[in-house]
Design a binder for these strands. Structure first.
Lengths: 181, 181
DNA sequence: TAGGCTATATTTAGCTC
DNA sequence: CGAGCTAAATATAGCCT
């Protein structure tokens, strides 16, 4: 049987031959994808990877595909406008995974937001007249807390410092000294 | 000229015909992708979307593709083990885009690291004896800075508060009051 | 006229040597 | 890797509704 492409079962394929076929067929798949993208003015991408191997083959038909995908990814809230026609698992899974990762990091950043405002002020990155009343009130509260905690922590630390620094390094004592007030 | 598939330029295609061709060719593309996946034991996905339309056509050959892609994405540090064979723009662009986004967020988080240690202490989330000498020295410096800055900022703020709060809201005055020390 | 199905023709894919 | 051969892909036309 010298058939063409239909009899891809019951075929005796050693690894070399299989590799050849893979390359050839991937190439022609790309060619057809390219034709399609031109002929019908669509973007086509294809991705292929083998089970045990470390190679991933990806084929973007056009550079614009890249941009459009990025654009698509850049506005995740638009996702729902797209109807994922067939098996949507692939692209969706990419999005979901990355979105989740980003959301977690965003939460961490958000937790630091108030403290950040404080530090922006402290380091002169933000001017005092750029702050609105609401933030001022928050900051004054923050100041109060910080003063109380500084006092408390310094007391507790001074004990620790004495012990640990005594064991390892006794240069640090002076640092406990120079605070104003 | 009745050619087949090569002459996809200078062709008179009304929208109906183009749609037909798109469907047919997508179908045969999928068919070939499927053949390839069986014949060479690889995973193949293809994605296509049109310019003006809201449909995305995705074709994963196998459900396992999804899992493998997730697995791949779940261990981004493994990326470098993968050699992106040909035009790697598509998948790579997804990864790059997301990685960049994540990197930026990670940097923001990292910037907060030191301040975080402070706050962990302040809020009792970290015990004093869990801190090593190096951190203690850093913290004592931080304390000194914080005290200085608190004093300085409070002075500057007290002026602003008077002005702004007077214009908008005069409940905040009391908050300037109750600090210890 | 529009759309769908079939037949046909010709190119392309893809295997073998 | 090229030649050659067979099946598949696919565009066009004809025909029917």
């Amino acid at each position: 049987m010298n058939g063409k492409g239909v009899c891809w079962t019951n075929r005796n394929l050693d690894e070399g031959k299989r590799k050849n076929i893979l390359e050839e067929r991937l190439a022609s798949l790309c060619k057809k994808a390219y034709e399609l993208s031109i002929l019908c003015d669509v973007k086509v991408s294809l991705i292929s990877f083998s089970h045990g191997e470390t190679d991933i083959f990806t084929w973007p038909s056009l550079t614009e595909t890249n941009e459009i995908v990025n654009n698509y990814l850049a506005y995740p809230e638009k996702q729902r406008q797209y109807k994922l026609v067939e098996h949507d698992a692939y692209l969706q899974s990419i999005l979901n995974y990355r979105e989740k990762e980003i959301r977690e990091l965003e939460n961490m950043v958000e937790d630091q937001e108030m403290k950040d405002l404080f530090n922006q002020l402290a380091e002169g990155r933000k001017k005092f007249d750029e702050i609105d009343v609401c933030d001022i009130k928050g900051l004054l509260n923050l100041f109060k807390d910080k003063r109380a905690k500084l006092d408390q922590m310094e007391m507790q630390l001074s004990g620790n410092v004495a012990n640990e620094i005594d064991a390892n390094d006794n240069n640090a004592g002076e640092q406990n000294d120079g605070h104003p007030n």
